[in-house]
Design a binder for these strands. Sequence first.
DNA 1: AATAGTCGCAACCGCCGCAGC
DNA 2: TGCTGCGGCGGTTGCGACTAT
Length: 300
Amino acid sequence: MAEPQRSRSRACSPGAPVELDDDHGQPGGAAQEEEQLELRRGPWTVDEDLTLVNYIADHGDGRWNSLARAAGLKRTGKSCRLRWLNYLRPDVKRGNFTADEQLLILDLHTRWGNRWSKIAQHLPGRTDNEIKNYWRTRVQKHAKQLNCDANSKRFKDAMRYLWMPHLVDADDHRRRVLHAQQQHAADVAAAAHGLSAGMVVTSSSDSFATTAESYDDVGGLYANLHAGEMAVVGGGGCWAAHEANHQGLWPAAADQSAAVAQAAGGGQFQDPELSGWVQGFSEGMITENFWALEDIWKIQ
DNA sequence: AATAGTCGCAACCGCCGCAGC
DNA sequence: TGCTGCGGCGGTTGCGACTAT
């Protein structure tokens, strides 16, 4: 993993033509070298973005090297591909990850490790780069706080028993608020139109219904998960619904407190330090600088 | 208001596998 | 069979934005 330090071309002035030295740059004739010298690196300009978007709109993507040449972009094919996939694609979703997405990332990472592109396939609109960045910035930061490796069993236990339940609770709370707001709006609308509230269709779970469809190919797990969540919105016990739908991947306890208690008191963790965290968490002692609800809400 | 420290993200890199010749 | 070009992936880095002091 520890690769030798590489010089960073972006230390040069952004966008300035620099000599190509990536793996696709082959030593060639004078004309080729001259062409390579004109290649740009660094941040993309608005003009370049427009050129790329317009070209792809007219001709489609793929064949990135020839696309770059044909579009008149002084960029490598790789650079064009990356820019398109990670930024310019119309279906790229921006903004913070939802609790749902975070749960999914944690869960899929438990299964597949750093297979970012594979994980990204199950998060519509999210790119592997974005997920990778999320993992490195937030998740690994937490791992560091716990003074353990993000891939260690200890950290996975902490995720399983502490973070996931909190995400679920935060998500549950968010949905209850949303549901209450929309119900209120529906009631107001119904009253205004002389209808009974029950006749007004609310859509508090629309986005989740959509994502549930997208997750179908993860063995139906997430379709079930989201269906379960929708069933318990407003009804409490959200963690239990999640847990039940995770079929053993997450704790088999009946609810969060039971899971935590079991983990802490029942010798679930070999690691005494982690048991201590869990104990502290269940007793409400650990609230600062940890995966507190407030911290998760900041993400929303 | 100025400075230092931290964070998030866009973009780059090397490596690998595959297809075509 | 080996070579070459390309696309894709995961890892890494630098810079701008933001926050704390």
